[in-house]
């Protein structure tokens, strides 16, 4: 019992059952790959009547819609339980993070509940995406000035 905190933590971590990483990776690959292949199909379909950029945007919107709907009917989390990063990393994961947070906060009202908490998980993604972009923009601006 006279174990200090560090050695107890090491002992507990060492004996803790590990996630089945190999199995998880296979599932992530298959689900993630499938979502991307579907996206590719949608893109080629949309490109029959849209410009490439607009088709790409519409593909994202379609996936976001499907993921939000599956979240609402309570199926997304059951798929994600197996798919892991396979549904998290594609844009579907972003959509699920937004929709599940919004749905979760419904009981606390639509302004400070849904309105504020919709960003709980997605907020950091937007914040750091935009910030990293802005830093890149400043660097790019300075580089172009020097190049001139």
């Amino acid at each position: 019992m006279q174990m200090d905190k560090n050695s107890y933590k090491k002992y507990a971590d060492a004996r803790a059952k590990k996630s089945p990483c190999a199995k998880n990776c296979v599932c992530a690959f298959l689900f993630g790959g499938l979502i991307c292949a579907i996206a590719q199909g949608l893109k080629e379909l949309y490109m029959t009547f849209l410009k490439e950029d607009d088709a790409g945007t519409l593909v994202s919107v379609t996936l976001i819609f499907i993921a939000a709907l599956l979240t609402g009917v309570g199926i997304f989390d059951r798929i994600a339980k197996h798919a892991g990063a396979g549904t998290l990393v594609p844009i579907t994961g972003f959509s699920n993070a937004v929709a599940s947070s919004a749905l979760d906060a419904k009981g606390e009202g639509f302004v400070l509940g849904v309105g504020a908490k919709i960003f709980t998980i997605a907020g950091p993604v937007i914040l750091y995406g935009i910030t990293a972009g802005a830093i890149y923009g400043v660097i790019y601006y300075i580089v172009t000035l020097i190049m001139k």
């Binding site: 089945p20 339980k81 699920n96 979760d104």
Partner: peptide
Amino acid sequence: PLEYGGQRAP
């Protein structure tokens, strides 16, 4: 949130 798609640790 309940509908968030995550995996649980063993």
